[in-house]
Design a protein around this nucleic acid. Structure first.
Lengths: 190, 190
DNA sequence: TCAGAAGTAGAACGGTTGGTCTATCTGTCG
DNA sequence: CGACAGATAGACCAACCGTTCTACTTCTGA
């Protein structure tokens, strides 16, 4: 064993990231530093050593989440088999499961973009890159499906995803994921 | 003349509402009270006299905005003539104009719902009521058009609106309003 | 004219914000 | 052993948060 931790299984950096990932979603990126430190059981100093400040931590949390969420898209599509059409529609079933989680509070990245007023905040670059990667994923499937305008269609699908997540956060009773899926089918049929 | 103002055309209540309407959109509902008072050129006391506190002011601002935005929907549809189909599609042209405004920062109501962590905040009831009224507007047109499931279709249209506004805020280059309009045509064709 | 309401200005409240700093302790490695 | 890196605890900072309060001015209406 190269490193030994007396009181925690993982180091303070990891604990801080996990606590922040949870708290910045449930409470928004406006959570106080004190709350983050307390939840992670980490010394104040460690935050500034590892991330340079709250903004750095938030950016890193978004990066982590984006990685995980992108992987979830890939996993969902992989589980749906080989047919590009089935793989794309499976994404909306996945969205439905996300919305159904009782701790669902809307799209983390949209919430961050709306909450971080400063356009120079490093978080914006992270969310932008994330959306570009997801769009790329969708576009790839659309091309495999032989869609005439895969890029434009991918943008439409992401619009449907954003809309479903927004509706799920504000009007969950309308069951937005199946509604979005039906519209997605029409996009694919073009 | 029933009332006379020495330094301002309108009273402090009105000035505060107008300043807050602007600032809570551009800076988010997290703006400080000091900033609001300074922008409105109003005494601290007036805020608490008229609105009971910051939360009351925010709720009233949302109420005002909702009234104005609902009126804008009505106006847009009225200008589009009598055909329900044309009236509904005109809504998405209106969304396009909203997104094109250089001070556009996404949907005010979604941003408020995501930012106000406390589910008991009076603002949430306001945004919920607003969405219900807009859905009712859309549903009415869909019924006039003879749509088989006007309520479900109205929810789908609102999903498209939310998606277009989210995309407009985060990926303006994708020109989301026409994309949403194309999908709306498919909803109407059902 | 004069009481009272409504407005302004600004001090002050306790609490919290993000961030810096010092001091101490622990574990690893040369 | 002894040096050093990493972590902790916690004091401290100026700034800001939303709110309450007092004191003064201005306008209105009986």
């Amino acid at each position: 064993m190269t490193t030994t931790r007396t009181r925690h299984a993982s180091g303070p950096r990891e604990r801080l990231l996990e606590a922040a990932q949870q708290l910045t979603y449930s409470q928004g990126v406006g959570v106080g530093v004190d709350a983050l430190l307390k939840a992670a059981d980490v010394a104040r100093r460690s935050l500034y050593e590892h991330f340079g400040g709250k903004d750095g931590l938030i950016a890193e949390v978004l990066r982590r989440s984006a990685e995980a969420d992108e992987a979830a898209y890939v996993r969902t599509m992989a589980a749906a088999g080989e047919d590009p059409r089935a793989r794309l529609l499976a994404v909306f079933d996945g969205i439905g499961e996300v919305i159904a989680r009782e701790d669902f509070r809307g799209c983390r990245y949209l919430a961050a973009d709306l909450a971080l007023t400063d356009p120079e905040h490093p978080g914006h670059a992270v969310t932008r890159a994330y959306r570009a990667r997801v769009t790329g994923l969708l576009e790839h499937e659309l091309a495999a499906l032989g869609h005439p305008r895969p890029a434009a269609a991918a943008d439409q699908l992401l619009l449907l995803i954003d809309g479903a997540l927004a509706a799920g956060a504000t009007r969950p009773a309308t069951d937005p994921a199946p509604a979005a899926r039906r519209l997605a089918e029409l996009v694919l049929a073009e």
